[in-house]
């Protein structure tokens, strides 16, 4: 079941730039104010993981795509991760519409390694995500 919310075509363009051209470190998406479309909140060219976490609002939902870089014994690795950020303090309407609309955006982002469904900072923490990526790559 879905909400019928549409994805603005620019969302896909910046995703392609992140994926193919490595132009962005991360992209944060949001619902438009009229709740009809998914639009870009911010597309950040250079930013740390801490800055990414800070860009997630305390009391509202977002989606994000992060070009996750980590080191292994074989060298540096890139994985594209998709985040659904839905803190408990967000309004129920926001939680509902974000959850029901996620698939519309997600299915357009081809080449995502895994998804992170998160409700608090411990679930987006670098170490938590790193562990998950490692576990899945093993």
């Amino acid at each position: 079941m879905a909400s019928g919310v549409d994805v603005d075509s620019e969302c896909l363009n910046v995703f392609q730039d992140l994926k193919l051209k490595k132009k962005y470190a991360y992209i944060v998406y949001k619902l438009s104010d009229d709740m009809k479309q998914i639009v870009i909140d911010q597309a950040v060219e250079k930013g740390t993981y801490e800055e990414f976490i800070k860009s997630l609002p305390k009391d509202d939902c977002r989606w994000a795509v992060y070009d996750f870089v980590y080191n292994t014994s074989d060298g540096e690795r890139h994985k594209i991760l998709f985040y659904s950020w839905s803190p408990d303090t967000a309004r129920i309407k926001s939680k509902m519409v974000y959850a029901a609309s996620k698939d519309a955006l997600r299915k357009k982002c081809d080449g995502v390694f895994t998804e992170i469904q998160c409700t608090d900072l411990s679930e987006v923490a670098f170490q938590t995500v790193h562990d998950k990526v490692n576990r899945m790559s093993a």
Binding site: M1, A2, S3, G4, V5, D6, D34, M35, K36, I92, K93, M96, V97, A100
Partner: peptide, 23 residues
């Protein structure tokens, strides 16, 4: 209240969305 009514509330939000009309 939210725990007792979460499915009604969910339905209320969904059915009020302009975009849901197509469904």
């Amino acid at each position: 209240a939210e725990r007792r009514f979460s499915s009604w509330i969910g339905g209320s939000i969904l059915a009020s969305l302009g975009t849901f009309h197509q469904l």
